[in-house]
Amino acid sequence: MLTAAASRRLVTGALLVPTVAFLAVAFVVPVGILLKLSLTEPAGPLSTYADILGSWVYTRVFRNTIVLGLMVTAIAVLLGYPTAYMLTRLKGFALTLAVYGVLFPLWISVLIRTFAWILLLEKHGPVNRMLVGTGILDAPAAFLFSNTGVLIGMVHVLLPYAILPIYANMLRIDSRLMLASDGLGASPWRTFRRVYLPLSMPGVGTGAVFVFLLSLGFFITPALLGGANNMTVAMLIENLVNDRLAWPLAAAASFLLLAAVLALLAVTARFVKLDTALEAR
C-alpha cells in the first residue's frame, strides 16, 4: 500500500515524465555531444578553449557581445519602466489596446522586423529623410552596419521582455502604500524613490535578466543590421560552423558563452531572486 504522500509524489513524477523525456532527448543529449566535440581536437582536449581565450580577436567578440547585451538591457529597461507604469494606469479598451501594442511585435517574425528596420534606417530611408529634412542632421547618418542600428533593432525586439515582468510586478504593488507615504508627508518624488521604485525592482531585475540572456544569443538582428566590427558570439559560431567548418572550435565557443551566462546568472541571483520576483509584491 502506498501512503497518500507517496502516491502524490508518484503522480507528480508521472506528470513530469513527458517533459523530462523530451528535454533529455532534445537538449541534454545534444549538449553532451557538443561538449564531447569541443574536447576532441587532436592538439589536446582543452586546446579549443585555449585557442579562443588566447585570441585577441575572439575575446573581443565576447566582450562586444556582453557590452552590446548590457547596452540593450539598459535601454530596454529605461524605456520599458515608464511604459509598464503607463499600462498600470490604463483601464478597459485603452489597456487592451496598449497591451496588444506591446505584444503585437512578438507575433511578427524577427526576420521581418529586422528587414523592416533596414528599409527604415537605410541611408535614404524615411528616418534619415526626416532627420535631414527637419534640420536635425546635416547629412544622412549611417545607422546601418553600425552599433546604432543593431541597438535599435535589438531593443525593439526585446522590449516586451522588459515591459511584461515589470508590469506584472507593478500590478502587485499595493496602491495604499503610496497613499500612506503621501499622508506621512513625502513628496511624489520621495514616494517614488523610497516606496514605488524599491518595490518594483524585482520586476526590473527579472526583465533585465530576460533581455540580457536573450540578447547574448541574438543572431539575426546583429547579423543583418551590424557591420563586420559588430560581430557577436552567435555570429562567430555561425561563421566557424558554416564558413570554416571548425566544429570543435564552435562547440567550445558555445560552452564559453554558456559559462559566461551561468556566471552572470549566479551573480545576479544574489541580487534578484527569480523565484520570488514572480510573486513579489
Binding site: D174, R176, L177, L179, A180, S181, D182, G183, L184, G185, A186, S187, R194, V195, P198, L199, R281
Partner: peptide, 28 residues
Amino acid sequence: PRRRNIGMVFQNYALFPHLSVWENVAYG
C-alpha cells in the same frame, strides 16, 4: 495629504514591506 499633517492608520495598515519596523516609523 502630504501638506495636511495628518496621521492615517489604514485598515490593513499599509506598512512598507521593504522597510524595517524602525524605518517604517521613521518614514514621516
